[in-house]
């Protein structure tokens, strides 16, 4: 029987929201949905899927490519080939999908944010969303994808009945990659998720020497300063100030983005802000699609000008 295999992402006991995008995509394909999940007590709406297969394994071992391929082999033995295996677009989802693709020699498209069912066309971001590629599979066969969070979750709907559920026999855990521990972020820094007004800087401000000027402006505006990943990577600002998927998700009254392009991983962390103002010298910058107000200008010049006015 044809089915979509949704590999769920459970992190610290939580069924991640982005699993709904995988479920939604399966519905677009009009496939029965089998959810693969580590055995445990999670809050999940089981009615979204037709079948549940549980694996007797810790979440940290489940989200490990070496164990995942063993689990997938078991599922395939039991249920036959799925038409598609769907992973989330996340740190682990990305890792698992590519490893499964290489192991089972199945086609892979990652970060899929759109699908045209009639034509079988997948939409995939290039150059941080400045353009998109329309991809097709060269064969009909099973394929693997990761789906961009937020893209398909509206297609996740409850089925009429509760799913059938079964548990896989124990799988052999690999010794070649093992989990040691989780590491929390240092929490002594300021909490940017509590700020009402974030002045956020990106790579476009040029270099570290410019930061002082932004700190000055932030002080004048009573804003808290935050940044995109490159700014944190280069240590212009401390890590807890990072906005985005691998940093913080923020929702201030105003998010003032200066010199930030608007890559998906950044947008995911700030798109729900009440008011977004973006300054970028590139009129094509994707951030303008999410901003309420946009300014095509040199961020540093705008900063200096604002400072002059504020100092009155």
């Amino acid at each position: 029987m044809s089915y979509a295999l949704v590999v769920s992402e459970i992190r610290r006991g939580l069924f991640e929201d982005r699993n709904l995008d995988s479920i939604g995509f399966s519905n677009l394909l009009q496939r029965n949905i089998t959810l693969l999940i580590p055995e445990g007590d999670y809050k999940i709406n089981e009615k979204f899927v037709n079948n549940i297969i549980k694996v007797r394994i810790e979440e940290s071992s489940f989200l490990n490519p070496l164990n995942m391929i063993t689990a997938l082999e078991k599922v395939i033995n039991l249920k036959g080939n799925p038409d598609v295996i769907i992973f989330t677009l996340s740190s682990s989802g990305t890792e698992l999908a590519s490893y499964a693709s290489g192991h089972f020699k199945l086609p892979l498209i990652t970060d899929v944010s759109g699908y045209d069912k009639e034509k079988g066309i997948f939409l995939k971001s290039y150059y941080s969303d400045k353009i998109f590629g329309q991809f097709k599979l060269t064969d009909t066969g099973p394929f693997i994808i990761t789906v961009r969070s937020g893209s398909f979750k509206d297609n996740a709907v409850e089925k009429a009945s509760l799913p059938a559920s079964e548990t896989l026999e124990e799988i052999q855990i690999s010794k070649n990659r093992t989990f040691i521990e989780y590491i929390e972020e240092d929490s002594t820094e300021i909490d940017i998720t509590k700020a009402e007004f974030l002045l956020s800087v990106g790579r476009g401000i040029g270099n570290q020497d410019e930061i002082a000027g932004y700190e000055e402006l932030a002080a004048l505006l009573k804003a808290v300063i935050s940044g995109s990943r490159p700014v944190i990577d280069k240590m212009w600002l401390p890590k807890p100030r990072q906005v985005g998927t691998s940093g913080k998700t923020v929702k201030p009254k105003v998010y003032f983005a200066m010199g930030i392009s608007g890559a998906f991983q950044h947008i995911a962390g700030m798109k729900d802000s009440d008011c977004i103002i973006a300054v970028n010298k590139d009129p094509q910058a994707p951030i303008f699609q999410y901003a309420h107000y946009g300014i095509v200008a040199d961020a540093n010049k705008l900063r200096d000008n604002l400072k002059v006015i504020m100092k009155g």
Binding site: R177, I180, T245
Partner: peptide, 14 residues
């Protein structure tokens, strides 16, 4: 390894 929201995991590989 970096996960989401500032969380990391320590792992060992051969």
């Amino acid at each position: 390894r970096e996960l989401e929201g500032g969380l990391r995991e320590r792992i060992k590989l051969t």
